[in-house]
Write a protein that binds this DNA or RNA. Structure first.
Lengths: 114, 114
DNA sequence: TCGTTAATTAACGGATGCGTTAAACATAGA
DNA sequence: TCTATGTTTAACGCATCCGTTAATTAACGA
């Protein structure tokens, strides 16, 4: 399961190696070998991670000769952030906490009234 | 593996049922049965999802009689967002795209110079 | 054409994730 | 104390994830 876009994105971000790859790509495009270099895992493993990132839309890839260059595509990060934004009110310092409290109380009251 | 905090958080968010539970909790605390109601899965399955969310720190739980109430804890969402913020420059409209372009070019040049 | 380099695919193994049903546990209340 | 209700734990099955090594594909370049 987990075919919806957000799930695919979050799942892709749930691996530290993949987040490391994204961090590297934030500094500029890189080949598979370059991306693999900081990690103590095999090249095929990196290749799979890249496929996951590509499937999530987090990177795009191009080939030039025998090198395959990856570049960061931030769009999915924007989507994921947009989803989290819905909860920003719950932690944002500028948020009126009283309002949240009242809404919680209200929800509980409604529940008991059933 | 995947023991680091961010991985646990992202993994918890990678399931649509769990995101649905969080959305429900944003409206106020709820019991396990209440949380399970919108979903076509068994109660034990919901119970496991809650355990995952709790382990990620996304919810806190309290018991009152035989009911176990869950409440949203937004802290991990703040952490996850903070991580993504590092990439905001790549998609934010207010960002000077030329700067990003120059940094990419620069990185590629450095690589070729090796 | 042959060898080298870059990367992927194939085949496998072990761990984890997510669902189920059945059983157990915890508390309230007659 | 017995029963009903809410929730968790146990035990299982199946799919997916993540890693490995070996083999394969693709392109360059002497």
């Amino acid at each position: 399961m987990a075919e919806d876009r957000l799930s695919v994105i979050f799942a892709a971000l749930a691996d530290p190696t993949r987040r490391g790859i994204l961090a590297r790509l934030a500094e500029g495009d890189a080949t598979v070998s370059e991306l693999a270099e900081p990690f103590a895992i095999s090249l095929p493993a990196i290749s799979r991670h890249l496929k996951v990132l590509e499937h999530a839309g987090l990177i795009t890839r191009s080939r030039s000769a025998q090198w395959r260059s990856s570049s960061l595509n931030p769009e999915p990060l924007r989507e994921a952030t947009a989803w989290m934004e819905r909860y920003r009110q719950f932690w944002d310092a500028n948020f009126d906490r009283l309002d949240a409290h009242l809404r919680r109380i209200q929800a509980q009251t409604e529940r008991k009234d059933r």
